[in-house]
Simulated scan of single mutants.
Amino acid sequence: MNNTLSNPMSKVVALFVAVVMLMATLLISPDKAAAALPDGQYPIGVTILKDVNGQPSTEPSMTNSYIVGPKFLNVRNGKNYVSFTFTQSKQITHFKVNGVDSTVVSQDLAANTRVIEFEVPNLTQTSSAWISINWPEINYVNSYNVWVKYDNLPVGLN
């Protein structure tokens, strides 16, 4: 029986190929894979999860019910931004992701909605977030730690 790997040169080539493949796998992090997406807008899934002792729960937060319509990954200059629409815009006074205030992209005062956007360096990880609510009509003022989970990502990110 002829075994190709019994040849010393074949072993060297096989080892070289294995090392190159391993290095390529380690060098392509999710951040770099995301940067490979061309600039544009991509539909994704977003779920706001409850915080349990500083960790994400598998259970959606009440905050999740204030998100309506499509959610998007917006890639600009190799950076990832996630956007979605909040209802109860007047009552949701702040929404921070990874400690940074979200940006208001647009607002509809009559519908009490706003589109927000925030940068996400790594969409394969759940992001910590914080929401502040001030709803005087029902005498409710509070803030919560929550988590943002991303799914249904474009091919190459998941």
Rank of each mutant, 00 (worst) to 15 (best):
A24F: 01
P70A: 12
G78S: 13
F118D: 02
N139L: 07
I116K: 01
L22T: 13
T85V: 14
K71C: 13
T103V: 12
M23Q: 06
N139H: 07
I133E: 06
V13S: 00
V68R: 11
N53Q: 12
L153E: 03
N7Q: 11
N77P: 08
Y81E: 10
N2G: 10
M9D: 12
A36T: 10
Y66E: 12
S132T: 14
V12A: 15
L15W: 11
S61V: 10
V115H: 04
P56T: 04
V19K: 05
Q88W: 07
V155Y: 10
S106K: 11
N80A: 15
N145L: 11
Y66Q: 08
E117V: 02
P43C: 04
L109Y: 14
W135R: 05
L15V: 13
I92Y: 06
V52M: 11
K50E: 15
N112A: 05
I131G: 03
N3T: 13
F118Y: 15
V115W: 00
S83F: 00
D31H: 03
N74H: 05
P38K: 12
P60W: 03
V104Y: 00
Q125N: 15
V155E: 14
I67D: 06
V141R: 12
A36I: 07
G45C: 07
P56V: 00
S6M: 00
N74A: 02
D151L: 04
K96R: 13
Q41M: 10
N142K: 11
N80I: 04
I133W: 00
V120F: 00
V82L: 06
N80C: 14
Y81D: 05
L123W: 01
S143C: 07
V68T: 15
Y42I: 00
W130M: 02
S29D: 02
S83H: 02
Q88I: 05
N122T: 11
W147D: 03
M23K: 02
V52L: 09
R76D: 07
S127Y: 07
K149V: 09
N134R: 08
L157N: 07
P38I: 05
